[in-house]
Design a protein around this nucleic acid. Structure first.
Ligand SMILES: NC(=O)c1ccc[n+]([C@@H]2O[C@H](COP(=O)([O-])OP(=O)(O)OC[C@H]3O[C@@H](n4cnc5c(N)ncnc54)[C@H](O)[C@@H]3O)[C@@H](O)[C@H]2O)c1
Ligand SMILES: NC(=O)c1ccc[n+]([C@@H]2O[C@H](COP(=O)([O-])OP(=O)(O)OC[C@H]3O[C@@H](n4cnc5c(N)ncnc54)[C@H](O)[C@@H]3O)[C@@H](O)[C@H]2O)c1
Lengths: 259, 259
DNA sequence: ATGCCTTTGTGAACGCGTGCACAAAGATGG
DNA sequence: CCATCTTTGTGCACGCGTTCACAAAGGCAT
């Protein structure tokens, strides 16, 4: 996932809904919404699971955390389930969101229609660049960072999106938190440190690609076991390479430099 | 994660590196690169773990899967570790990447500098819109979808990025796979079905926000324990007769998929 | 060399998530 | 009302991931 991972350890479970289940609820909701638009009245766990790309047993267990909303022998009422999941996710209310850093990515996010379609409303676009201030992006005037605190307070914003360069991310984060933001979606490739009670999720394209590259390399290595490294293994750390776990993934073993 | 979760179950483990560890290696690599640029020679697991935002024991265990690259009493050699992780992730070679769908998001991705900084090279930008063909984005001419297969074959591309609307994603995916792509990063809000051996990771902004909203709602609920449901819970499933719910319950989400 | 101090590497315990498999529940038909 | 069939809801087992805690390893000073 492109999704953040380390969330909250296990402070107090929110009424018994596992984090892994919460992460899948939007997936189910999307599939259910599609069914709803096709006026499908009911759906079985098997069908819905296929549409969401998960195991049917997992789906049923997930739903069991929400309550017994299905009918045995029939399935789940689509409309009813859409409502229940929406309510559980807090989508029956409107969530004003501020986007900070209106560059390439920030502008794309502002233009993204998928925002509004789920109860998220772009309350403001904020950038530190004075030349951007006042200019409209996606129909909303970009505002200067100076007004950040005021905007958040006036609109009761609790969710912020950071799309600034990595170097500014922590600073922006601190200001957002100080202003009352308690949930942050971070696109900058940095680890943000936040006080207790503030949720941070990160989206890091670079990490996703690197994970793909890892598996890609492994696939290639299986097909062609005879692979030679291009660059020399660099200098080992002085004289400390003591042991190696059996045969490495490929033949490359760093040369042990005699002390 | 914003990252996809369900990866490969346990087909054939890459000889000992857990998926969770692989997902953290880029994080370590980023922190190590920063240290390297500051010419820090060695780093302890405690320091590095803090920089990467993880538990130090976890970091040490992660590294133990790669081999014994540390020195007890001292720590890890930064340069050496950078190389080892880069090699493990397959970043010592160049990975040509194609981006399909050069709209708001695709253009932002094309302009993203973080691509090239890790060995990923944008080999081509592809879009179905004829009016885009030939126009330069981020210094690269957009090419029409017709040339997709040829581009992939000519450049030996194995990683593809999908940034088209959801409705086209599966179709684009199928073409990519048929052309030889074996790793896909999907930004479209759809479940892609791919044959065995093809890796898919998804980045879904909407899902991330919904997860944040869930926790946000819970925080609010804790502060105000006396909260009664605002909207009536809609009609229970009741009799599952051929009831066709015309106008859905008021709690129904708008849910309009952007075309 | 020897002893002390720091830090790694890892065994083991634990908790979470996943998936199987099935009993119970309800619908449906006779 | 009963039989049968479908599908839910879940008990249970298993494997993965996380974390603790500590012995071993190495550096460094004496
Ligand atoms: N573009 C992508 O596809 C992409 C992909 C993944 C990650 N990212 C990350 O997202 C972030 C933004 O990327 P981008 O391509 O849009 O960069 P960009 O340079 O185009 O935009 C950054 C914007 O942030 C503004 N900014 C800088 N400091 C600020 C501050 N302190 N307060 C408010 N605004 C500030 C700048 O004025 C600029 O408009 C970067 O951290 C990048 O690494 C981008
Ligand atoms: N913009 C965002 O911030 C954002 C965020 C999250 C997810 N997404 C998703 O990313 C995708 C792209 O978003 P966007 O805002 O860039 O949309 P967009 O409409 O601006 O761009 C889509 C592009 O894809 C091209 N396209 C359509 N069908 C194609 C096909 N079959 N083959 C090749 N190209 C095709 C279109 O010509 C267009 O240029 C969407 O699925 C969207 O839901 C976007």
């Amino acid at each position: 996932m492109a999704t953040g991972r380390n969330h909250r350890p296990a402070t107090s479970r929110s009424r018994g809904i596992p984090e892994a289940t919460v992460a899948r609820l939007p997936l189910y909701l999307r599939a259910l919404t599609a069914l709803s638009e096709r006026s499908v009245p009911t759906v079985s766990s098997e069908e819905l699971a296929a549409a969401a790309g998960v195991n049917s047993a997992k789906l049923r267990k997930d739903f069991s955390y929400l309550g017994s909303y299905g009918t045995r022998g029939v399935g789940y009422d689509v409309e009813y389930l859409v409502y229940q999941i929406s309510r559980e996710l807090g989508l029956t209310q409107d969530w004003p969101v501020v986007i900070v850093g209106i560059g390439n990515l920030g502008a794309a996010l502002a233009n993204y229609g998928g925002f509004a379609s789920r109860g998220f409303r772009v309350a403001a676009l904020i950038d530190a660049d004075p030349s951007l201030a006042g200019k409209p992006v996606a129909g909303i005037d970009v505002q200067h960072t100076d007004a950040l605190e005021q905007i958040i307070a006036d609109n009761g914003v609790s969710i912020g999106v950071i799309a600034t360069p990595a170097g500014s991310a922590q600073q922006v984060c601190d200001r957002l938190v100080a202003a009352g933001i308690t949930s942050i979606l971070n696109f900058a490739p940095t680890v943000l440190s936040v006080p207790e009670g503030v949720d941070v999720r990160k989206v890091d394209l670079s990490i996703e690609l690197q994970i793909l590259a890892f598996h890609e390399q492994r696939k290639a290595g299986e097909d062609a076991p005879e692979e030679e490294e291009t660059a020399p293994p660099a200098a080992p750390p002085a004289a400390a390479v003591t042991k190696r776990p059996g045969p490495g993934p490929d033949g490359d073993v760093p040369a042990v430099m005699p002390a």
